[in-house]
């Protein structure tokens, strides 16, 4: 932590945390990009991270990413399990020598005093076989609670990531539940509780959780989704052949999400599962390689 750490005014609601993080990382030279508009399971999968981690060009970006995990839906009945949660994602390439300090200052910016809270870096190596990526880093604990993932990317799409990028992921719902000392995610204040129209997280997202869970578990048409998967796969492969990387990657993400839907529907046998994952991985690797080649 350096003297430049600015103690933020204590955030009062979900969006205060987002705004504070955006402001902080914008001050560190990040491009604040908007959430990617294709379904992803994690902020890392956005091309703003996965693809940008490859190639020699420097890159700094930060964004909120709604992350869809169909299997985790609980019809809005579980206090913290969600079909869609939000990650705040930061990528710094190359990672600066003082990245840990920058990260710790971001905590100060959202009102966490490291001389009151016990902040720890606990070994946690990250791996995402679907995009052939891995890195070393930590999960960051605040009073025993995991509040962030911190990773130095070593490989993406099976390629060495040089220079190395540092990646930060804040799980926003969990982070806020902890900071605001609230048990149930739907009770989180979403906007300022003093505003004329205070909204809770539930006001904004409960219906979505209920209906998406119904869709994921009961109503989705597995045959149709299977066909869409195949279509997305074909489309991605065709685009890759034409060296049209970003659209190819979009359809790879589509395929990945469609597979997650099938999986949530419980229609994927363990053997098929491996094969689905391998098909997405091949596409993702192809995209990563084509992107990297285009950056050199």
């Amino acid at each position: 932590m350096t003297a430049s750490a600015k103690q933020g005014s204590a955030p009062r609601c979900f969006q205060d945390v987002i705004l504070a993080l955006q402001t902080y990382w914008a001050e560190q030279g990040c491009a604040i990009v908007q959430p990617y508009d294709i379904e992803v399971g994690a902020g890392t999968l956005s091309p703003m991270t996965t693809l940008r981690a490859l190639g020699p060009k420097p890159w700094r970006a930060a964004y909120v990413q709604p992350s869809r995990r169909p299997k985790d839906g609980r019809y809005g009945e579980n206090p913290n399990r969600l079909h869609q949660h939000h990650q705040f994602q930061v990528i710094l390439k190359p990672n600066p020598p003082d990245m840990q300090e920058l990260y710790l200052n971001s905590l100060v910016a959202v009102g966490i005093d490291p001389l009151v809270h016990d902040i720890r870096f606990v070994e946690d190596d990250w791996e995402n076989p679907t995009v052939g990526a891995w890195g070393l880093g930590w999960e960051v604990w605040c009073d025993g609670m995991e509040i962030s993932q911190y990773t130095y990317f070593q490989q993406v799409g099976g390629l060495d990531a040089r220079p190395v990028s540092g990646e930060l992921t804040y799980g926003l719902e969990r982070f806020c539940l902890y900071v605001f000392n609230i048990e149930r995610v739907y009770d989180l204040p979403y906007n300022d509780p003093q505003s004329p129209y205070p909204l809770t997280y539930g006001d904004v997202f409960l219906k979505n959780e209920q209906q998406q869970s119904r869709f994921n578990f009961e109503l989705s048409d597995a045959d149709q989704i299977q066909r869409w998967f195949e279509d997305a796969e074909t489309q991605a492969a065709r685009l890759l052949q034409a060296a049209c990387v970003l659209p190819a990657y979009d359809y790879t993400l589509k395929a990945s999400h469609l597979f997650n839907l099938l999986d949530a529907r419980g229609v994927v046998s363990p053997t098929e599962r491996q094969s689905f994952i391998a098909r997405v991985r091949d596409l993702a690797k192809g995209c990563a390689q084509a992107w990297e080649a285009g950056e050199r």
């Binding site: 005093d113 490291p114 009151v116 809270h117 016990d118 902040i119 009073d143 025993g144 609670m145 000392n181």
Partner: peptide, 22 residues
Amino acid sequence: TVANIEAKDGGAVIAKGNRRVL
């Protein structure tokens, strides 16, 4: 739990937070 700091408040916040996580 073993903290890494001499907390300003003597550790009350840390103990409470860890209780919640546990």
